[in-house]
Amino acid sequence: MKTVVLVSGARHPVSRRPALTRLEAQAASLAAKLGGTVRGLHAGPSDDQLREALGHGLGEADWLEIEDRVDPVPALIDHLKAAAPDIVIAGRRGEGTGDTGLVPYALAEALDMPIIADVVGVSPGAGSGTVSIEQALKKGARRRLVVQLPVLVTIHPLAPPPSPFAFAAARRGTIRHERIEATGLPTAKPSPFVERPYRARPKMMRQAGAGQAGEKAVLVGPTPEEAAERILAFLEDNGIRRYSA
């Protein structure tokens, strides 16, 4: 099985140095555990993030060097068409450039691969050419899919934690470097949006008891049975759980 792990050009949130995101580290570890040939892939101006991914379990990687302002998707598509991997694993949202999370979808569309989002586990399927994928849903639910290869998956934060970084592994891993000239590649489309420095905006405050119209009940010294009734009624009224058979 051939697996490619996509690595974005993320930066560390504090130091702004190139750094691998946790999701991509999880992706690298997941791919390494899957076995087969596993390669990292990054298109961007530096290979620091790839080097870090090697330390999280990837043995080899491809670095498509492109300039900062160039859209990485065409280069990635060309590379993946040639490499023809069975599985492509990406973080649910890359960081560093647009941060839209669209790249995996664009790749899947161009390569005509199905894409499965929010994956927490990948294991070889029972039949040949298939893979069993576990997807995280709300409230701890999971969906287990058996999918025909090739497939592109994006990783959910609840996937197994990344295997810790090992310096020696990063040192031993090899990165194949390929320089992609900007000429001939369409640069990223001019955005209709104005870009300006980021200003942090506070999130809305979560109000205690929102949705229950400020109702606040205090029962002083009820009998335990009465208390139990009230608790269950509260849980059912607010739709938390249903207990009747």
């Binding site: 934690p161 810790p164 090992a166 310096f167 592994a169």
Partner: peptide, 10 residues
Amino acid sequence: QTLELGAVPL
């Protein structure tokens, strides 16, 4: 443990 295996406590 740390440099070769990355096997540090969680």
